[in-house]
Amino acid sequence: MSLEILGIMVLWTFLFGYVIVASIDFGAGFFNAYSELTGKQHILTKIIQRYLSPVWEVTNVFLVFFFVGIVGFFPKTAFYYGTTLLVPVSIAILLLAVRGSYYAFETYGTKGHKGYALMYGLTGLVLPASLSIVLTISEGGFVSMTEGKPVLDYWALFTSPLTWSIVVLSIIAVLYISSVFLTWYASKAKDTKATDLMRKYALIWALPTIITACGIIYELSFHNQEHFDRIIDLWWMFGLSFLLFIGTVWLIWKRKNYGLAFGLLVGQFAFAFFGYGLSHYPYLLYPHLTIYDSFTNEAMAISLVVAFVLGLALLLPSLYLLMRLFLFNKDYVKGSQKNKA
């Protein structure tokens, strides 16, 4: 495997990790706010808070890892994406800032403030939308080179059906991933009411997820023929993804083995996400930038890979400890331990 491929695989894997953990987090925030509004907070809030509290910081790091890594492995992306993304990414930063700090303010500071919960929920929906814009831009057609500098055409971007279908998918996927996870989490906590409610949400958002995903592939056939053709070549990945989707929905419908259901969901999104990534290869930004012409020098690439392996050796055991103490600790999940500082 060439260093270029290795680099992008590592980054893409981390981005996938972010998509999953952030979706859970974004969706949880939304469901929490929604239940506040509809007077069902007694059912959901505890479960959601208990999950989010020890892990929220970790979620953010996945994203930071991705963008620091991509500038390290593919420095030219800093020039192309840095110049064009000023506005959308700045907005995403603002939302993340509001979200992160207000979460801490509410959890560790003033409990039960409705405004914080609503803010947290709302940003959870706008964020995936603003972040997913980056994927849309990468499809090409929105960035032109003027005097050697990339310029983003906002008008074209905001009037493109592709943009909006990706935005819609990102929001729906967030709700779907999150509700499937929380169904599992609530059932582990033996909280039947919360489980039933989350199960209902999971079933509601299942079909729209698949429909919008197919819609995007259809849109892409008009927008970027080359990418579309490559997706069709990789049809089996998307087919497998669909089968896993059926599995998840079936298990949830039958109220069986929610843990496996979530596992299948991760598989479903993994196949779709990596299928998308593979078909995007070798372009980072159609048609200006590929992973080959933007790659860093060999010395840096090797040291990044070594640092990555060493870092992982440090992180994986720590993450495992975190999960064992909180996510998979029966007493903690059920809320029978109160050890907060």
């Binding site: 970790v58 930071v64 990555f308």
Partner: peptide, 29 residues
Amino acid sequence: MELAGNVIALPLFMEVFAFFFEAIFLGIY
């Protein structure tokens, strides 16, 4: 950053790991 990415990306990258490490244990603590 295009130039820096080529030459000084390593400590930036390691900073993320250091922070990751810190964040995990802070949550646990």
